[in-house]
Design a protein around this nucleic acid. Sequence first.
DNA 1: ACAGCGCACTTGCATTTTGCAAGCATGACG
DNA 2: CGTCATGCTTGCAAAATGCAAGTGCGCTGT
Lengths: 104, 104
Amino acid sequence: MTDEGDENGLAAALGLIGQRWAMLVIRCLLDGPKRYGDLQRELGVPTNILATRLRELQDAGVLYRLPLAHNQRAYALTERGLALRAALEALAAWGRTGRNSSPS
Amino acid sequence: MTDEGDENGLAAALGLIGQRWAMLVIRCLLDGPKRYGDLQRELGVPTNILATRLRELQDAGVLYRLPLAHNQRAYALTERGLALRAALEALAAWGRTGRNSSPS
DNA sequence: ACAGCGCACTTGCATTTTGCAAGCATGACG
DNA sequence: CGTCATGCTTGCAAAATGCAAGTGCGCTGT
């Protein structure tokens, strides 16, 4: 019964985290919670894009804000965000292959 | 060593297949070679975008053109493209979760 | 032969997303 | 009170994306 509607699993995933920089931000946060400036410096992402992505990913339930001090807060992954580790590492592993093996 | 060496892989992967529709096209081709019109109908992707993506993915070594008849050709994944199956299925599996969950 | 059809694209233009640079708000600190 | 670091927002240009219509090309029917 319930035929495989899995054709949309990917579309659903990309609808949530398919925007530019989104997966990079998530992967960066897999190392642990980080602050806005850290993400900016580590990824080199434009600041307005970063702010937008963080809002969207928070709405998507992938990460949440973690207040620290007066002007400092951190961003951390939710369980749903952490569940992306396997998928993102698979993608990263693929990206690492296809480097020209040897510059003969 | 001169450069970071341990570069992300994820960034490399997204540089190749991170464009809109690219992963959907690849996932569609995991079922086997298909023709232009098939991809268009199955995915609902705009025709100019599809043409652009197919060219880019071909350049990326992910798929190749397979001539059939006079005005018909098929697109099929290379080994590099087929190697994406695990990653895309992991992403699709993640996308399938969280549809019917209890709001925390 | 030639009009018409289906297939695989291309082209023109509007809309949306992305990027760069600069500015704003806030609280700490001198 | 002025300056600083941090975390954003805003203005505007460039690029990507999307829609619709058009192009080329071989085949088919008459």
